[in-house]
């Protein structure tokens, strides 16, 4: 199976190991990974600011780059939600667009829904806090959200739960936003930081040893708050744990 690897711009520039872990993980599962080097940014910062004319060329660029892959896989729920839900106003009717929407997957959903993998083997003897990144949670439904009445599930937890020694943090507020929110983190700096500090305090209270998420952007924000305060709860993208990285590889 051949996939086009879609690496968000900030992961490319700031968290290269997340991209490497994603590629290695997919290859280990027998997937033929190709990284088209023309890619840059999906346009989400512009779209979420409301700047549609600035988003549009990036949507077209993305379609051109990824149109011919059987699958597109990305280690970010937020960037996949951008392609799946917000490209329509720019690309509706463009050849290949509907197919692109149907074949673009976030990493965890690709593993669970397309590859249908069993929980991965390995060892990770830590109490892990899964941060429910909002766009993955409520946009892609990678897990059940606390507001909705229905069966409880989590694709992240499913993939992690067979790792030897792993336990999971139980939070009073299971899926409160960390406060990153893209440009929100700048526009509403005070609220954004307060949300992040509150989220970290929740994890500290329940004894989280490693914090993970399907979106590195949330972890970038939380980690930035911790580093300023001299606290250090290791943060790892879920791809890093699934690829067998040690906690020493944490950010």
């Amino acid at each position: 199976m051949r996939i086009g690897l879609f690496i968000p711009c900030y992961i490319d520039q700031l968290y290269p190991d997340v991209g490497m872990a994603t590629a290695e993980l997919l290859e280990k599962l027998g997937v033929e990974v190709e990284f088209p080097v023309e890619q840059t940014c999906c346009g989400q910062p512009m779209a979420n600011t409301g700047c549609q004319p600035e988003t549009r060329p990036l949507a077209f660029k993305f379609l051109k780059i990824f149109r011919d892959f059987p699958y597109v896989v990305c280690p970010s729920g937020s960037c996949v939600a951008m392609v799946r839900y917000h490209y329509r106003e720019h690309l509706s009717g463009q050849p290949g667009f509907e197919e692109l929407v149907g074949k673009t997957f976030e990493l965890c959903e690709f593993l669970v829904d397309v590859l249908k993998v069993k929980p991965l083997a390995g060892s990770f003897p830590y109490q892990v806090g899964i941060h429910q990144s909002c766009h993955g949670l409520r946009g892609l439904r990678l897990a059940s959200s606390s507001e909705v009445v229905g069966p409880s599930f989590s694709k992240m937890r499913y993939l992690l739960e067979a790792l030897e020694g792993i336990t999971f943090s139980q939070l009073d507020r299971p899926d409160e936003c960390c406060g990153f929110g893209g440009t929100f983190s700048i526009n509403e700096e005070a609220v954004s930081s307060q949300m992040g500090l509150d989220r970290l305090a929740d994890h500290e209270r329940v004894g989280t040893q490693v914090l993970t998420a399907p979106d590195m952007s949330c972890l970038m924000h939380l980690s930035g708050l911790m580093r300023r305060r001299g606290t250090r709860l290791p943060v790892m993208h879920i791809a890093q744990i699934l690829a067998g990285r040690a906690v020493s590889a944490a950010y």
Binding site: G139, S145, E147, F180, E188
Partner: peptide, 14 residues
């Protein structure tokens, strides 16, 4: 500024 006073977490919709 009000539409920007939102991290787009989506909890309100759910």
């Amino acid at each position: 500024s009000l539409p920007y006073a939102c991290s787009l977490c989506g909890s309100c919709a759910d």
